[in-house]
Simulated assay, not measured.
Amino acid sequence: MGELINGLRLLVAGQRWMVRHPRDWRFGMVPALLTLLGYAAALTALVLWAGDLVAWATPFADHWQSAWRGAFRDLLTAVLVGGGLLLAVLSFTAVTLLVGQPFYEALAGRVEDAEGGAPLPPERPLWRELWISARDSVRVLLRVAAFGIVLFAAGFIPVAGQTVVPALGFCVSGFFLTLELAGVALQRRDIPLTDQLRLLRRRLPLVLGFGVPLVLVFLLPIVAVVLMPGAVAGATLLVRELLPPPPQSDPEADNSAPAPGTRPDQDPPDQETAAGRAPEQQP
């Protein structure tokens, strides 16, 4: 239970970090706004032309009675629009992270710099970073699709399909959403996807405490636009919880360390003593 609460605390801490840094918040909203506009345009086109697309795809229904043909094509149109909307909701975060890779990379770096102990990112060209991000996003989506098929089939189990399976679905979505968000900071540490999965499974309650509430609020893309920068900041803090930065040495403490060959309560030898006094010259 403590790990679940700790995950929720990190989620809130990320949003608070953005409240204290409004410039970074506005900077981090740019990719989400661009993605939202793109999705809005695509969904508008789908609604306008879904009927024509369904009519083109079902020429065999042209000879049906008008009532049956209209009901059949209206049903397919509703399914097509509903499926497009569902796909938009499910893929919005992944596409936003892909589009905003340079933005969120910089944002995660600012969070790490502000918290101290920031790791040095690997020296790779931008195209390489985008390729790794796109490749990992596809691999994550394939895993999500596999879990989705299993959960869809399990949904037909009486009682459990209407109670346990939806709860498991939210847990699976929360885990992979956290993986996508934390991938920005983990990629800065040059950790491959398989190791990322292993790392998050090791602290599963912490990850679910962070990701499941975020899944619920991200069901509305408008809310996702506002909270996405804070979610990236919170995921960066979560990675620092999973992989604490090494303690940094104190330069003043290093300078005050006793010289070799002396006791701690003994003053270090001066330059003349250390080098040895020159012998007095004989008259």
Rank of each mutant, 00 (worst) to 15 (best):
D74E: 15
T77C: 14
A78W: 12
A78G: 07
V79W: 13
L80A: 14
V81R: 03
V81W: 03
G84A: 02
L87D: 06
A88V: 08
L90E: 05
V95F: 08
T96G: 04
T96I: 00
L97W: 00
L98A: 13
Q101S: 04
P102R: 08
Y104W: 09
A108K: 01
R110L: 01
V111S: 07
E112H: 02
E112T: 11
E115R: 10
G117P: 04
P125D: 09
L126Y: 01
L126N: 10
L126H: 12
W127G: 14
E129D: 07
E129G: 04
W131V: 12
I132G: 05
I132H: 15
A134S: 11
A134Y: 06
A134L: 04
V138H: 14
V138I: 14
R139H: 08
R139D: 05
L141N: 03
A146T: 12
G148K: 02
F152D: 07
F152G: 08
A153N: 09
A153M: 14
I157W: 07
P158L: 11
T163L: 07
T163D: 01
V164P: 08
P166I: 01
P166G: 10
A167W: 07
G169C: 09
V172Y: 11
S173D: 08
L177E: 06
L177I: 08
T178N: 00
L179W: 01
E180C: 03
G183R: 09
G183L: 09
Q187H: 11
D190F: 10
T194L: 11
Q196Y: 03
L200M: 15
R201W: 15
